[in-house]
Simulated assay, not measured.
Amino acid sequence: MATTRIKWLKRIFASLAAAVALYLIAALFGSILPANPYWKSPDDGIKLYIETNGVHTGIIMPIHSDVHDWGALIRPEHLDDPTEYGSHILVGWGHEGVYRNTRYWQNLRFKDATSAILGSDDVLLHVYHLKYPQAYPHYRRAFKVSEAEYRLIVEAIKSRFLFDPSGNAIPSSGYGKDDLFYEARGHYNAFYTCNSWTSDVLSQAGIRTGIWTPFQGGVMRWFLEPNTDGL
């Protein structure tokens, strides 16, 4: 009986190891195979940034531009201190439990990790306010998009917001004075992560990125050029 149990445990662990290995291999190839391979950043366009904190990625956009004004949706009065309202916003999307309970990865709870892997409709948009951001090679990289591409990015992000009966976004407290969570729509799982979402938004706008990027490195690798604020 004990020998049979050991054999079954070995098979289970071997199956799990094989599944993880296949996932990582697929993520590698998905990250290096491009969607929209012929896209080029225009010389004259709207400057955006891709940022990573080492795990999550997000898109930095100007709050006000000729193409779109985020001020009607993301308002100064949503913040406890409206003076923290920025010139730009960093927007990411992800699993609610992980976002709210895991500011630092040592705080990650097994329950939240399991829910994120298996799948959940409990998702949020995370918005940081930034004031005149600059590019940094290791975690924030600049690129430009055309007005038409930016409109598609805006629409893809706006479609994730949930609204109250009056048509307003629904904010809640973030980690500090300069960030907020917003109620959102979507389904998070191991195959559609916060980083998959970032690439999905870019891909919908015709911008070159990996075809499947569950990890932050798969997103950032497509913006390796040494861009600076003189871009």
Rank of each mutant, 00 (worst) to 15 (best):
G210L: 14
P214Y: 15
G206E: 05
W93I: 11
Y128A: 05
N195C: 03
G206L: 07
W39M: 09
Y175Q: 01
F215G: 14
N227Y: 14
L28N: 02
A18S: 08
I60L: 10
R100W: 04
G210E: 11
P165S: 07
G210S: 15
H129N: 01
E183T: 14
D121R: 15
L16E: 09
R221Y: 06
L79Q: 14
W93E: 04
N227M: 10
A26L: 11
G176R: 01
L73T: 15
D178I: 08
F29H: 09
W39Q: 05
G206C: 03
S199K: 00
G230Q: 14
W93G: 01
W197G: 00
T57S: 02
N168A: 09
Y128N: 10
R5S: 05
L202E: 01
F110M: 14
R185P: 05
S172I: 03
I63Y: 07
T193S: 04
A116G: 06
S87W: 13
V67H: 02
K158P: 06
Y139F: 13
H138C: 06
Y99H: 03
Q134R: 10
H187K: 12
E51H: 12
P82K: 13
G54N: 11
P226I: 05
A18K: 10
V98W: 01
Y99C: 06
A142Y: 01
A18H: 08
E183F: 09
V201I: 04
G97W: 01
G45K: 00
P171W: 04
P214K: 15
A135D: 00
K10H: 08
N101R: 12
Y188L: 05
W222S: 03
P165I: 09
T57Q: 02
R185T: 15
G167T: 07
A190N: 05
S31H: 02
S15N: 09
W105I: 13
G218Q: 08
G210C: 14
L162N: 14
L9R: 07
P137F: 08
F215D: 13
N189S: 13
K111V: 07
I89L: 15
T213V: 15
I211Y: 14
A190V: 08
E149C: 06
P62W: 02
F191P: 04
G186P: 13
Y139I: 09
A113K: 02
E149V: 08
D122F: 07
K144D: 10
L231R: 04
W222R: 02
A156M: 13
E225W: 07
T52I: 04
P76C: 10
H68G: 07
